[in-house]
Nucleic acid binder design. Structure first.
Lengths: 216, 216
DNA sequence: GACTCATGTTACCATTGGTAACTTAAAAAA
DNA sequence: TTTTTTAAGTTACCAATGGTAACATGAGTC
């Protein structure tokens, strides 16, 4: 009975949760987090705004879901990129910021919630926090591998990791907020420029004096 | 007639504009930009929420004013710090990220609006954009001075500047969003750790192979 | 002392996030 | 097959918010 099925599809959306996450991310990428409203979002999904509360306990919980979703997706991308590289530890380390950047370019809405939006300390962000920690562990392990292989200054890695995380995240978010335009040479592709800058930075860190990174 | 003066002071606030900026910045630092409402803010200043519209055309315009105010303050701090250093170009360059960081630690509310909040492309942000450009020019000039003095790899400076801006901004905003806690050694003062990491990064950039930073 | 105008106020509006109570239809139990 | 349960929608409603319009106050000027 196709008529019944059509009506059913109309009433029960089928995959409202994922649809809402995707739509919200797109809106955030376009107009920022302040702009989007649950009602407009629900309307776009063909549903009443109250239906959203079946899947997210609040507007902020939807944002938290986007953050968790983003970290999981990022982690999958990072792991896949590393797996394709075998045992070249330095290449495996370098691919992390590159993946991070591609993720930012591909999913700016997710990225914004993950890094520029202030998470409430509510429990709704617990999942996101856990996913974030796992993603960070990947970097930590990669740096340790490089140190063990003599590819990076040995000793406490905190400052080295902080510097790598810093330059990666800094370039990504400066670009996302449009503040890299002033620096970037005209007519260059942004992604290439950023990735080359990143690689240069990592290389500078790699060959630097190990004493630089020791805690004083 | 002190009674009349008191009434007058009650009616005409005196300096509502600056008060609102300060209060808003404090609230944003505490609870994020999403939380603060014009009504609560106005109440805190002892005024009706409609009074805010005498000074800011909208809520977003208040945020824009905070951004412009922040860039101006940052620029003053940077210029002062540099002036105290004479002609030591490398020290003058290094003091910029340090000032940037201290500003972030001292005025996190301003910092958040300046760097983590998405500016609408409305004209209300014009002032902020102009102030931002001036602040950036300071860095550009300082890098050029260092290059002229042979203290930094010569040639196109875009990538070098991008890397410096990136690591500075990245560390600052990672710290602000609490994401540096996982990296930072326990029981260390955050500001010292970040500044030392920054100096190490800049030093690594300084002694690096100039070819790294040339455009390919 | 009257006039002006910046800076407040009250009254009001549409929109928003969120809750309560009800409805629909798909899946499980009989 | 029929009945029951339950996940996933709906309508009706609420208090709070950003914003507008029309009015009030009072400090400075002629």
């Amino acid at each position: 009975m196709p008529a019944a099925k059509a009506r059913s599809a109309a009433y029960h959306h089928g995959n409202l949760r994922d649809t809402l996450i995707a739509l919200a991310s797109a809106r955030i990428a376009e107009a920022g987090v302040a702009d989007f409203t649950l009602r407009e979002l629900a309307a776009e999904a063909g549903v009443t705004h109250v239906a959203t509360y079946r899947h997210f306990s609040s507007r902020e919980a939807l944002l938290a879901a986007i953050a968790a979703d983003g970290y999981r997706k990022l982690q999958v991308l990072e792991a896949a990129a590393q797996d394709a590289l075998g045992a070249d530890h330095w290449a495996r380390l370098l691919v992390l910021p590159e993946t991070y950047l591609r993720f930012m370019l591909d999913m700016p809405g997710h990225f914004h919630i993950m890094f520029a939006h202030r998470w409430s300390d509510d429990a709704i962000y617990d999942e996101a926090v856990a996913a974030q920690a796992e993603s960070f562990a990947l970097l930590e392990r990669s740096v340790a591998d490089c140190q063990a292989a003599g590819l990076l200054p040995a000793g406490g890695a905190s400052r080295l990791i902080a510097a790598m995380l810093g330059v990666t995240h800094g370039l990504a978010s400066l670009w996302l907020s449009g503040q890299l335009d002033i620096v970037m040479p005209p007519r260059r592709r942004a992604d290439r420029f950023i990735i080359e800058t990143l690689k240069a930075s990592f290389e500078a860190f790699r060959v630097s004096d190990p004493d630089l990174w020791r805690n004083k």
